[in-house]
């Protein structure tokens, strides 16, 4: 059997079936002529097109949101992870604080030698005494004196360094690599702000800088809509060189968000959150 035979056989289709199909075609073409049907058809069409519009709008909105989300995530993650500057600086601070006691140790030994020289009595006693006990006693004395001197030197140096640090650096320096972008950092608790309290400027501390950089380097960004952040606890206001103000919000469940990066929150560790809280107390 060929296709032509099949087509020929189709010619045997019952006239009633053909008439029915013809009638349906004609009635579907004639339908819009009656007023009621036209209204119904138009209503149905409108409903359909409205549905299509809503669907189209939803698709466009969702895809735009997805693109924006991805861009913010990329920006957020790249920005936060690039903390090599801070780390280097932190490492160098630790190295210098380790090196300082060693220098202090040397100074203490010198001091001890000096004191040794300045104590002719002790040396004459040493020479005079035959017993080794006297010698040991002198050595012990010298050692303890040297240790005391070294300890006090270390303490003095650390205090001096801390004083220098806090004097030279401001709260903005705690922002690490972002410090260049901002000229002022203020904070206020959510409660105080609600009560009309004024903002405070925290003092620079090395611990604060570490806590902030740790929090941001370990923090994980996620969509705000999916995070149960809890209530806002602290607001940190960052002022840029242009005078713009960016607000950073800390939440009770150890989340952080920035008003200029909407829709994204960052989950930080509870320990980091507590350290930052200490900074603001």
């Amino acid at each position: 059997m060929r296709a032509e035979d099949l087509f020929e056989a189709m010619g045997g289709i019952d006239e009633k079936l053909i008439a029915r199909s013809d009638r349906r075609v004609r009635s579907s073409q004639e339908k819009p002529s009656s007023g009621k049907t036209v209204k119904k058809a138009r209503k149905r069409k409108n409903r359909r097109s409205m549905g299509a519009e809503i669907y189209r709008f939803t698709v466009v909105a969702m895809s735009t949101a997805a693109v924006v989300f991805v861009l913010f995530m990329a920006r957020d993650l790249l920005g936060i992870r690039d903390l090599s500057d801070i780390r280097d600086r932190l490492d160098s601070t630790q190295v210098s604080s380790i090196a300082e006691p060693v220098q202090a140790d040397g100074a203490a030994v010198e001091q001890a030698e000096k004191s040794d020289a300045e104590q002719p009595e002790a040396s004459s006693q040493m020479k005079a005494a035959d017993s080794g006990q006297a010698e040991e006693a002198v050595e012990e004395q010298a050692d303890s004196a040297a240790e005391e001197l070294a300890d006090s030197a270390v303490e003095d140096k650390a205090a001096e360094a801390a004083a220098n640090n806090s004097l030279a650096k401001t709260a903005v320096d705690m922002l690490g690599e972002f410090k260049g972008d901002y000229v002022r950092l203020e904070y206020i608790s959510a409660k105080e702000e609600a009560n009309g309290g004024s903002r405070k400027v925290p003092e620079y501390t090395v611990e604060g800088e570490i806590a902030l950089s740790e929090a941001f380097s370990k923090g994980k960004a996620s969509p705000a809509i999916l995070a149960s952040t809890g209530e806002a606890t602290y607001y940190v206001y960052l002022t840029t060189k242009n005078g713009e103000e960016h607000r950073v919000v800390f939440y009770e469940n150890a989340y952080v968000s920035m008003d200029n990066i909407p829709g994204i929150v960052m989950k930080i560790s509870q320990a980091d959150y507590e350290e930052i809280e200490d900074l603001f107390r």
Binding site: M1, D5, L6, E8, A9, M10, G11, G12, D14, L17
Partner: peptide, 15 residues
């Protein structure tokens, strides 16, 4: 024979 048969079969199919 088959042509007649086929016509009827197609008619039944369409119905």
């Amino acid at each position: 024979y088959l042509a007649t048969e086929l016509k009827e079969a197609i008619n039944r199919f369409a119905e």
